[in-house]
């Protein structure tokens, strides 16, 4: 049994059929990447799992059971999304944002430990812990969004385009962090447009095109696929 199983998932926004019966599996402890161009439906899939977008048919099973429909209850199950565009709380301090990540946790010691950990990974956040998050730079806000995700101590963490709009050096930091999160024993579902990096770190990967999964397999296999190289890695097929 996979940790997360999606079966024949359909999402409509009014007349727009955004996800057309997709199925995928995420195994415990793995990094699963999903690549796809703009509007393919990547965020829709994450939001359906998180419960902030309703799906019309299909099943989402977590550890073999149907997920609750209320978004806050899904977080309680140990699933956390670091959303696209970060959605940090710009009116609150860095520390308050991180603390909100741990909103449902009761283990004070664990929260303290994870806070230390986040500050170790992103020392910049500790320097700016009393700064209003809206005044952080874009890169710092992305660190904050990831730190906030770590603070929720999820079993499954879903990252929606964590490297979007970041300078190359910071993109590396973000991917190092993703590997670190994996080393902490977490399972990661990663959505990315940076296909090269996303496929390199992935145990398993899926390609989503216009609401359909068109390819799947181990990350390194997809990296070698000439069609993918052409479409997503910006290389001409040989």
């Amino acid at each position: 049994m996979s940790m997360l199983e999606i079966r024949d998932l359909n999402v409509y926004y009014g007349g727009i059929h955004a996800l057309k019966g997709i199925s995928l599996d995420v195994e415990e402890g793995q990094i699963v990447s999903m690549i796809g161009s703009n509007g393919a439906g990547k965020s829709s899939m994450m939001n359906a799992i998180s419960g902030i977008v309703k799906y019309q048919s299909g099943d989402i099973l977590y550890r073999g059971e149907k997920l609750p429909t209320m978004a806050n209850k899904i977080v309680k199950q140990g699933i956390c999304q670091v959303p696209e565009g970060r959605l940090i709380f710009a009116n609150l301090t860095t520390y308050e944002n991180l603390y909100l990540g741990a909103y449902l946790r009761k283990d004070k010691d664990g929260i303290e430990r994870d806070l230390k950990r986040v500050y170790e990974i992103f020392p910049r956040l500790e320097e700016r812990k009393h700064q209003i998050a809206g005044t952080l730079s874009g890169g710092e806000q992305q660190m904050l969004a990831m730190g906030r995700g770590i603070m929720s101590a999820p079993d499954l963490i879903m990252l929606d385009e964590p490297s979007l709009g970041l300078a190359p050096l910071l993109v590396n930091t973000i991917f190092e962090t993703i590997l670190e999160i994996k080393a902490m024993g977490k399972t990661i579902l990663l959505v990315e447009q940076n296909a090269l990096k996303a496929l390199s770190v992935a145990d398993n990967a899926y390609v989503l095109e216009q609401g359909r999964i068109t390819k799947s397999g181990p990350g390194r296999d997809l990296l070698k696929d000439p069609k993918i190289a052409e479409a997503y890695l910006g290389k001409a097929a040989h």
Partner: peptide, 19 residues
């Protein structure tokens, strides 16, 4: 804190597990 968070962005608040 939950009220202040939701006043900024309710969707993001929900993703933190806020009811």
């Amino acid at each position: 804190l939950a009220i202040r968070a939701c006043s900024y962005n309710e969707k993001a608040g929900t993703l933190m597990g806020i009811n």
